[in-house]
Computed example of a mutant assay.
Amino acid sequence: MALHTLWIYAVAVFLLSATPGPNMLHVLSRSVELGIKRTVATMAGCLLGLVTLLAASAVGLGALLHALPGAFTTLRVAGAAYLLFLAVKAWRAPVREDETETQDLRPEVSWQALFRGGYAISISNPKAIVFAAAFLPQFIDPALAQVPQFAILVGVFAVIEAFWYSVYAGSGRALSRHLNRAGVKRAFNRLTGGLFAGFGLSLLAFRAT
């Protein structure tokens, strides 16, 4: 793989990863709710889920999903259902009328649960496999060994994605300072729920070609 090809890939991934999606929204909302430190577990789960999907595309799972449309539909519906569940959960999240709680009064959620939640929302997006199966091979030199090249591409993707997770987590922490009023916090929860619902419905509408 030529160095200029890798740079083009890195720039493309940087721009793609900056675009808000379910993972970024989940990291943002967790940071608002729990703070940056505890959101690290969520970010780790999201990142592992993403790497799992990229690795799956590298070993040909994307082609398998094309060959078995029923399997893709099942994964797509399951992923959409999970996103819609998160939408309802966010929309109905209780809000104290005196939203002046400190970090110590925020909900106690284990690191394991945060990690599992991040992994679940990341792995529940099968169209990422199809995207990666179409995107990654464009930067592979067929004259060279493919496995090391895929490993480099996945590694670069993971590093850039982790950077954007930290940016969104930091934004969530800054945003949390403005959500002390119950009405504002309720509006934020419902906006988050609406966005999750939008992602879920877009996943239902997606068709692998």
Rank of each mutant, 00 (worst) to 15 (best):
R76P: 04
V77A: 08
V77Q: 07
A80P: 01
A80I: 02
A81T: 04
A81K: 05
Y82S: 05
Y82T: 06
L84W: 08
L86M: 11
A90G: 07
A90C: 10
P94K: 08
R96D: 12
E97F: 15
D98F: 14
D98Q: 13
E101C: 14
T102F: 14
T102D: 12
Q103W: 14
R106M: 11
R106N: 06
E108L: 13
E108T: 15
V109Y: 04
V109S: 05
V109A: 07
W111S: 12
W111M: 12
Q112F: 15
Q112T: 15
Q112E: 12
A113M: 11
F115C: 00
R116K: 13
G117A: 08
Y119E: 06
A120P: 08
S122C: 07
S124M: 07
S124E: 06
S124G: 10
N125A: 11
K127V: 03
A128K: 01
V130T: 07
F131W: 09
A132N: 00
A132L: 04
A133F: 04
F139L: 02
D141I: 00
P142E: 04
A143Q: 13
A143Y: 09
Q146G: 11
V147S: 12
P148A: 07
I152S: 00
L153V: 01
V156T: 01
V156Q: 05
F157G: 03
F157W: 11
F157D: 03
A158M: 06
V159H: 08
I160A: 05
I160V: 10
E161K: 14
A162C: 09
F163I: 10
